[in-house]
Amino acid sequence: MTVTQLSTFVLVARLGSVGAAARALNVSESAVSQALTALRTHFGDPLIRRTGGGMRLTPAGARLLPVASRMVALSADAEVAVRAVRGAPDELRVIATSTLTEFVLPSLVEAFACRAGRRTETSFGAASGNEMRVLLENRLADVALGPDLGALRGSEVVSEPLFRTRLVVVTSARAPRPSGPPPLWSWLVDASGTDPDADSGRLLRRLGVTERHVRVFPNQTAAWAAAAEGAGVAPALTHLASPRIRRDELRVLDTPATPSDATWYATALRPEHRSPATDGFLHFLRTPAATRIMREPGTGVSPSQFRPPVHVTLWGG
């Protein structure tokens, strides 16, 4: 039995499927299945069974889950402690919605790396709101940027408002207004449009848009490009889409739910469970430099200012 196997079990149990756990860990579904098989062999119990509605814990699996969660958390604490004694670089794992990962997160991480007082190994990637909460609570991520995850009573995480913007709907500047009510329009979204916690996902739910009227693109840029070509309409945050609006590629459509306010939050475990790198990054997010990057994405630091000792990798998707 290994910590990796326990982490995999916890993610499958919390997220509800092998596929969701594989996406969160950025590994293949077969790797997740192999870890579960090894754990089942060790305990002599299936632990999790497939049902028509998803996954269901066996009685033994239900008893194992809280214990496994504590073991995974203790393993994370142990790694932080050993790193500190060895003088190794701090570790910082940041996750965000797909939109923030595409436009903002790389520049934020790069700018933080240049300002950090000590070496930090930083990794970052995209996750849905549900995945964010599970990854944070099980110490598999340190900071999440996106929706408010700390609103639930008894939550182990704390969310703080970080940046306010406006959510709008855009279409081709050359196309006429779509016919019919908004639920019948062709909606073009990135992965955040399928996330019920993200701004785009909440907007589609408020407007009553069904899945058959939604097309999902690899990223927000691709969705806006399709909208500019007249393929449909797309949710957009005004400050991110403003360059395309100024170039007359896109124009804003009013809907019963937009324009509306949107807020990005920074979420982490409670202070007593945070690493120095996590505290440092949260402090950086409140600085004018970080606000400027969020307001004007892509204006981070120049390559000559980036300090090589900080290693940045992309680990999520």
Rank of each mutant, 00 (worst) to 15 (best):
V104S: 12
F217S: 09
A13W: 04
F284V: 05
A81N: 12
D148V: 06
M71N: 09
T4Y: 13
E131H: 12
P259G: 01
D148N: 15
D190Y: 01
T2K: 11
R14A: 04
D148C: 01
L15M: 01
E29C: 02
G317E: 10
L140N: 01
S200K: 03
A234E: 08
W264E: 00
P276M: 06
S7Y: 02
S98E: 00
E121K: 08
V157C: 10
Q34I: 14
R295D: 15
V104I: 15
P243Q: 06
G230C: 06
P256D: 05
R307L: 15
T97F: 00
W185F: 02
T313D: 11
H239V: 01
G146V: 08
V104E: 12
G316D: 03
A227P: 10
G300F: 14
V134G: 03
L204N: 04
S123A: 13
S69T: 10
R164I: 06
V85P: 00
A31C: 00
V72C: 01
N130G: 14
V158T: 13
H213S: 14
A290K: 07
R118T: 14
L57W: 01
G44E: 08
R295N: 14
Q34D: 11
F281T: 05
G201Q: 06
D77Q: 14
V169P: 14
T278I: 00
V18Q: 15
P303I: 08
A151R: 12
L57P: 03
V169R: 10
D248Q: 13
V12F: 03
P276V: 04
S302C: 09
S275H: 00
D190Q: 10
T194G: 14
V27E: 08
P176E: 05
T221S: 14
L285P: 08
P276W: 04
G87N: 08
P178M: 05
T255H: 07
S242M: 13
S123F: 04
T165K: 02
R177N: 04
L47G: 06
D142P: 01
P276I: 08
P46Y: 03
R40A: 15
V18H: 13
V67M: 11
R177D: 12
R274A: 01
P66Q: 02
L15N: 05
D279L: 12
A144P: 09
M132V: 07
L11E: 01
R63T: 13
S275I: 03
A198H: 07
A234F: 07
Q220S: 14
V158W: 05
S302Y: 10
H239S: 10
V82S: 14
R307K: 15
T120M: 05
L47N: 04
